Amino acid sequence: MTVPQKPIRAAGCVLWRRAASEDGLEIALVHRPKYDDWSHPKGKLKRGEDPLAGAVREVAEETGMECRPGAPLPTSCYLVDGRPKQVRYWAAEAVAGAFTPNSEVDRMVWLPPTDARLRLTQERDRPLVDALLAALHLA
């Protein structure tokens, strides 16, 4: 009998800002050289860390941005090397800060929602763009 493994707990945000584009907003995506992928800022929670606090911390670490968290978005569940991973997400408006490349994230882009959806590497990250628009009553 195999014992179910405890899921890897992680959290992140779909980071957005107001923009002059036709959608009225842009979404931040980060590029991680270790995986050569584009994703929403997210990361593993520290032991005992509140998921929302961890999401805000990860946004600051990966993007250099301070954010104002808003509505919860769908949780993403998938396997990593056979182990379940659960990532809780929130909508978060960028309010201050500036991106500085680091070893974990070497690039960050701000894109309109349509372009962000196309740039995301993982299919599972794309519905979060729609969830953000719905949460902001733009869908």
Rank of each mutant, 00 (worst) to 15 (best):
V3L: 14
V3K: 12
Q5A: 15
K6L: 14
K6Y: 11
P7Y: 11
P7M: 11
A10Q: 14
A11M: 07
C13P: 05
V14D: 03
W16N: 02
W16L: 05
R17M: 10
R17I: 04
A19K: 01
A19G: 08
A19D: 14
S21Y: 00
S21P: 00
E22W: 02
E22Y: 02
D23K: 03
D23T: 12
D23H: 10
D23W: 10
L25I: 09
E26S: 06
I27S: 02
A28C: 13
V30S: 06
V30D: 05
R32G: 09
R32E: 15
P33Q: 11
P33F: 09
P33H: 09
K34T: 15
K34R: 15
Y35I: 11
D37S: 10
D37N: 12
S39M: 12
H40V: 03
H40P: 00
K42M: 13
K42R: 10
K46A: 04
R47L: 07
R47W: 01
G48L: 02
E49W: 03
E49L: 00
G54V: 07
G54E: 09
G54P: 03
V56N: 10
R57T: 08
R57W: 07
V59D: 04
A60I: 01
A60E: 13
E61F: 01
E62D: 10
G64P: 02
M65T: 00
E66F: 06
E66V: 08
R68M: 05
R68V: 01
P69F: 10
A71F: 08
A71Y: 05
P72K: 11
P74E: 13
P74S: 12
P74T: 13
T75I: 13
T75G: 03
L79I: 01
D81L: 13
G82I: 04
G82C: 05
P84F: 04
P84I: 05
K85A: 13
K85E: 12
K85Y: 00
Q86V: 14
R88W: 02
Y89K: 04
W90E: 07
A91W: 06
A92M: 08
E93S: 09
A94M: 03
A94V: 02
V95R: 12
A96H: 11
G97A: 08
A98Q: 14
T100V: 14
P101Y: 09
N102A: 08
M108N: 01
V109C: 04
W110Q: 00
L111Y: 03
L111V: 00
P112T: 04
D115R: 13
R117I: 01
L120R: 04
L120I: 09
T121V: 01
R124T: 06
R126F: 03
P127V: 11
A131H: 04
L132N: 08
A134R: 14
A135E: 06
A135K: 09
L136G: 07
L136V: 10
H137R: 15
H137N: 11
H137K: 15
L138A: 09
